[in-house]
Nucleic acid binder design. Structure first.
Length: 283
DNA sequence: CTTGTACCCTGACCGC
DNA sequence: TGCGGTCAGGGTACAA
């Protein structure tokens, strides 16, 4: 479900309330939500009694550092990593949310302040795993740069794209190339930059690379400022919706009028996912 | 190495 | 009303 702006919105909402809280009890409703080949029991044993550090995000992953001793400045014992995939969502409150969008209990963490962190996931494609710092550092090197960080320079982006023959849309979806961009924002960024999603990544010239980099940063920032895009399932913390769906220019608008040239927005399939673009504006 | 495809799962929607 | 097919903000394993 969520891409970088949605996951970052959730991180910001959780960060303050979770910091230094102790996890008193863990309830797991489905074994398939615990990833990485670890059992439900082992997961509970390694999470219960731990204190939560500063909630982080990398790509579309949320990371909760867990401490077994009360020294939140030392390195954590391990990291609890969450991927929400298509339909994962969180709530943090005293009682289970009873809303229509929150009817699929997944995992619950009872905290020492009386709140419970509820994870709900309709399709159960998301889940939790536990990683040592070393294991995470190893995985982390496989991810592309964070597009909103200063590391995502035109030069770095150009070096990433240069050898690639895959379509630029596929490349933007590949987390090894650029982290955190998903299907909605890939289409939106390519539209803003005026680049055809079918173009082989390595054929973009320097001006196009710069335009695309700037467009990615612009779109992700704008979406973050509006707490993300809520089309069907995505909810920020405690059921709140994002509002960037009102600003989408091409995603989900197949057959509609291009707002730049009055041509028609078209839809095609790339990497098994829908791409939306204006053939008249994007080359 | 790179690139494509199948798959995990439920629910909403469409046409018959 | 019911049924089957299709599709949905993702990531991973595996094949070519």
């Amino acid at each position: 479900m969520p891409e970088l702006p949605e996951v970052e919105t959730i991180r910001r909402d959780l960060k303050t309330s979770l910091f230094s809280r102790e996890i008193c009890r863990v309830r797991v409703y489905h074994d398939d939500l615990i990833l990485g080949g670890i059992s439900r029991r082992a997961f509970q044993m390694k999470v219960r009694g731990r204190q939560i550090g500063k909630t982080e995000r990398r790509a579309k992953f949320l990371l909760f550092p867990l401490y077994s001793e009360a020294n939140l400045n030392a390195p954590p014992e391990r990291l609890m990593r969450v991927q929400l995939r298509m339909t994962g969502q969180f709530a943090l409150q005293k009682t289970r949310p009873n809303t229509e969008d929150f009817q699929h209990p997944g995992v619950e963490f009872l905290l020492d302040d009386g709140n419970t962190l509820y994870y709900d996931d309709i399709r159960r494609l998301g889940g939790f795993d536990l990683l040592s710092l070393e294991a995470w550092c190893q995985l982390e090197t496989q991810l592309g740069p964070e597009p909103l960080s200063s590391a995502f320079s035109v030069k770095v982006f150009a070096e990433i794209l240069a050898p690639l023959r895959a379509p630029i849309k596929n490349t933007l979806l590949n987390q090894r190339r650029v982290a955190g961009v998903g299907n909605i924002y890939a289409s939106e960024a390519l539209y803003k930059a005026g680049i055809d999603p079918h173009r082989p990544a390595g054929t973009l010239d320097e001006g196009e690379i710069r335009r695309l980099r700037d467009a990615i940063r612009f779109i992700l920032s704008a979406a973050l400022n509006k707490s993300g895009t809520t089309i069907r399932n995505y909810r920020a913390l405690n059921g709140h919706s994002g509002s960037f769906q009102n600003d989408l220019q091409v995603y989900g608008r197949a057959g509609g009028m291009c707002r730049r040239c009055s041509g028609t927005v078209e839809q095609t399939t790339q990497a098994g996912r829908s791409s939306f673009f204006c053939p008249n504006c994007q080359h």
